[in-house]
Amino acid sequence: YKPCFVCQDKSSGYHYGVSACEGCKGFFRRSIQKNMIYTCHRDKNCVINKVTRNRCQYCRLQKCFEVGMSKESVRND
């Protein structure tokens, strides 16, 4: 598999339409299922990588959408 499109960590396969790691897969699923609203405490362009991905949930979710993750493919079960 290609590296995670969101944070470049080791991917566990294709999730919600893109190559993603377990961490970003779970983060995206929880964010969508719980209708989470995050805020960025900087200027909405935080670097998201394996080391920084937990620092800003707003920018991490934005990057999930930017790389093509589909909220329609998240099931509500």
Rank of each mutant, 00 (worst) to 15 (best):
residue 1 Y to N: 15
residue 1 Y to L: 08
residue 2 K to V: 08
residue 2 K to S: 09
residue 2 K to Y: 08
residue 3 P to R: 05
residue 3 P to L: 12
residue 3 P to Q: 13
residue 4 C to W: 00
residue 4 C to A: 02
residue 4 C to Y: 03
residue 4 C to P: 04
residue 4 C to G: 01
residue 4 C to M: 02
residue 4 C to H: 01
residue 5 F to L: 09
residue 5 F to N: 04
residue 5 F to V: 07
residue 5 F to H: 04
residue 5 F to G: 08
residue 6 V to C: 00
residue 6 V to W: 01
residue 6 V to T: 01
residue 6 V to L: 01
residue 7 C to V: 01
residue 7 C to T: 04
residue 7 C to K: 01
residue 7 C to S: 01
residue 7 C to D: 02
residue 8 Q to T: 11
residue 9 D to E: 10
residue 9 D to W: 03
residue 10 K to T: 13
residue 10 K to C: 11
residue 10 K to E: 13
residue 10 K to S: 15
residue 10 K to H: 12
residue 10 K to D: 14
residue 11 S to E: 09
residue 12 S to C: 15
residue 12 S to Q: 09
residue 12 S to G: 06
residue 12 S to V: 11
residue 13 G to W: 02
residue 13 G to V: 06
residue 14 Y to P: 14
residue 14 Y to T: 12
residue 15 H to F: 08
residue 16 Y to L: 09
residue 16 Y to S: 09
residue 16 Y to Q: 10
residue 17 G to M: 06
residue 17 G to N: 08
residue 17 G to H: 05
residue 17 G to T: 06
residue 18 V to W: 05
residue 18 V to G: 06
residue 18 V to F: 08
residue 18 V to D: 03
residue 18 V to Y: 05
residue 19 S to V: 14
residue 19 S to C: 08
residue 19 S to K: 06
residue 19 S to E: 11
residue 20 A to F: 09
residue 21 C to L: 02
residue 21 C to E: 03
residue 22 E to G: 05
residue 22 E to Q: 05
residue 23 G to L: 12
residue 23 G to H: 08
residue 23 G to S: 14
residue 24 C to G: 01
residue 24 C to I: 01
residue 24 C to V: 03
residue 24 C to S: 01
residue 24 C to M: 01
residue 24 C to R: 01
residue 26 G to T: 10
residue 27 F to I: 02
residue 27 F to C: 02
residue 27 F to G: 02
residue 27 F to W: 01
residue 28 F to G: 01
residue 28 F to S: 01
residue 28 F to M: 04
residue 30 R to Y: 00
residue 30 R to G: 02
residue 31 S to H: 06
residue 31 S to Y: 03
residue 31 S to Q: 05
residue 32 I to N: 09
residue 32 I to T: 07
residue 32 I to C: 07
residue 32 I to E: 05
residue 33 Q to K: 10
residue 33 Q to F: 07
residue 33 Q to C: 06
residue 33 Q to T: 07
residue 34 K to W: 12
residue 34 K to H: 07
residue 34 K to E: 15
residue 35 N to Q: 13
residue 35 N to Y: 05
residue 36 M to W: 07
residue 36 M to T: 12
residue 36 M to F: 04
residue 36 M to R: 09
residue 37 I to N: 12
residue 37 I to F: 06
residue 37 I to C: 06
residue 38 Y to L: 06
residue 38 Y to K: 08
residue 39 T to F: 14
residue 39 T to R: 10
residue 39 T to A: 10
residue 39 T to K: 13
residue 40 C to R: 01
residue 40 C to A: 00
residue 40 C to M: 03
residue 41 H to A: 11
residue 41 H to L: 09
residue 41 H to Y: 07
residue 41 H to T: 14
residue 41 H to M: 13
residue 42 R to P: 00
residue 42 R to S: 11
residue 42 R to Q: 14
residue 43 D to I: 10
residue 43 D to G: 11
residue 43 D to Y: 08
residue 44 K to I: 11
residue 44 K to N: 08
residue 45 N to C: 11
residue 45 N to P: 10
residue 45 N to M: 10
residue 46 C to Q: 00
residue 46 C to M: 02
residue 46 C to F: 00
residue 46 C to S: 03
residue 46 C to R: 02
residue 46 C to A: 01
residue 46 C to Y: 00
residue 47 V to A: 13
residue 47 V to R: 09
residue 48 I to G: 03
residue 48 I to A: 03
residue 49 N to E: 11
residue 49 N to K: 05
residue 49 N to D: 15
residue 50 K to F: 15
residue 50 K to A: 14
residue 50 K to V: 15
residue 52 T to I: 09
residue 52 T to V: 10
residue 52 T to M: 11
residue 52 T to H: 04
residue 52 T to Y: 00
residue 53 R to Q: 15
residue 53 R to D: 10
residue 53 R to C: 13
residue 54 N to Q: 15
residue 54 N to K: 15
residue 54 N to F: 13
residue 54 N to S: 14
residue 54 N to C: 05
residue 54 N to A: 13
residue 55 R to H: 15
residue 55 R to L: 15
residue 56 C to V: 01
residue 56 C to W: 00
residue 56 C to G: 01
residue 56 C to M: 02
residue 57 Q to W: 14
residue 57 Q to F: 13
residue 57 Q to V: 04
residue 57 Q to D: 15
residue 58 Y to N: 03
residue 58 Y to L: 03
residue 59 C to P: 01
residue 59 C to V: 00
residue 60 R to C: 07
residue 60 R to T: 11
residue 60 R to E: 03
residue 60 R to M: 15
residue 61 L to V: 03
residue 62 Q to R: 08
residue 62 Q to W: 06
residue 63 K to W: 01
residue 63 K to R: 10
residue 63 K to S: 04
residue 63 K to F: 02
residue 63 K to Q: 05
residue 64 C to N: 00
residue 64 C to A: 05
residue 65 F to V: 10
residue 66 E to P: 03
residue 66 E to D: 13
residue 66 E to R: 11
residue 66 E to V: 10
residue 67 V to L: 08
residue 67 V to C: 07
residue 67 V to T: 07
residue 67 V to W: 03
residue 68 G to F: 06
residue 68 G to D: 02
residue 68 G to H: 02
residue 68 G to M: 02
residue 69 M to C: 05
residue 69 M to Y: 03
residue 70 S to D: 08
residue 71 K to E: 14
residue 71 K to L: 10
residue 71 K to D: 08
residue 71 K to P: 07
residue 71 K to A: 10
residue 72 E to I: 07
residue 72 E to K: 06
residue 73 S to R: 11
residue 73 S to V: 11
residue 73 S to W: 08
residue 73 S to E: 13
residue 73 S to A: 14
residue 73 S to I: 12
residue 74 V to M: 10
residue 74 V to D: 13
residue 74 V to G: 08
residue 75 R to A: 14
residue 75 R to E: 14
residue 75 R to Q: 15
residue 75 R to C: 15
residue 76 N to H: 07
residue 76 N to V: 12
residue 76 N to G: 09
residue 76 N to Q: 13
residue 77 D to Q: 13
residue 77 D to L: 06
residue 77 D to I: 09
residue 77 D to W: 05
residue 77 D to P: 13
residue 77 D to S: 08
